[in-house]
Design a binder for these strands. Structure first.
Lengths: 145, 145
DNA sequence: CTAACTGCAAAAACTTTGCACTTTT
DNA sequence: AAAAGTGCAAAGTTTTTGCAGTTAG
């Protein structure tokens, strides 16, 4: 994980550069996204920000996340029920998700570039973004089962 | 792709064996799932079946798909907006999805078993199901862009 | 005949949208 | 002051659920 403080400032600088306004709610969401070691969902971000800004609305959370997505500053992880966001590694990388408790961790696995090339050739597709997700049981839930 | 007719009969036999009833609506859905070369969504299946059975409801589509999923006879592909279903290769395999027109094709790529093992060791997770999706542009949309 | 299935409508859950008001710049 | 953002409520999606009526076995 990159230095959270640096990541925070980097994202703020990018927003500023594109003339987006640094409202307190927005800054706080960016801070959370930069600081979170895990992969928070929109709902989790909303709940956290509400502690500091009781008037915060879900709409604002989604609008700001849309902004950051568009700027390629967060990676959206689409699950069955909702989406989770990764602001530390905005590039594509694998995730492992527990089907019992929904805990998400990064999968340390490199995406082989030559393999992508081969896939592009056989399929005719131009591949833009791989999304690799492994569903399984986290250590905790594995033990219980 | 396996022989559609054989696949159709196989699924019907499995349903019968588990004492699930072969209603016309259900049989038609199974037929479509077995015959479809593509990866239909619940809505697409619903629309198709309505041609033959005008009273068909979405609820029934979802209930039958849940049944087939539980029997591991279809693979559910969770996309951002909805889910698509693959009844020909119920086991996990990669997909390539066009972000413009949503066309889905199978990715001919083997999932390396030793890699999975390594991931399990480093993460502590017990991996049950890999879901590998490549987002990109299909040959058609690539050309237009 | 009876247990299972269908289909309607309502509900659930996540996300988006419209718009008046507020705030950043 | 002007443009952008917030927040509320309503609407939009996909999927699930409850239940009365229907049907396969």
């Amino acid at each position: 994980m990159t230095d959270p403080e640096a990541r925070f400032n980097e994202m703020l600088a990018l927003l500023k550069k594109r003339a987006f306004r640094l409202t307190p709610q927005r800054v706080e969401l960016v801070r959370l996204i930069a600081v979170s070691a895990g992969h928070p969902s929109a709902a989790q971000l909303y709940t956290k920000i509400q502690e500091k800004f009781p008037t915060m609305s879900q709409a604002t959370v989604y609008k700001t996340l849309a902004l950051l997505k568009e700027m390629n500053q967060v990676l959206e992880i689409n699950l069955r029920d909702d989406s989770h966001y990764d602001g530390n590694r905005p590039g594509a990388h694998p995730h492992i998700i527990c089907t019992k408790c929904n805990q998400i961790v990064d999968g340390e696995l490199e995406i082989d570039h030559s393999l992508l090339k081969k896939l592009e050739e056989t399929s005719g597709y131009q591949i833009v973004r791989p999304q690799i997700t492994f569903y399984g049981l986290c250590p905790n839930c594995k033990q219980k089962a």
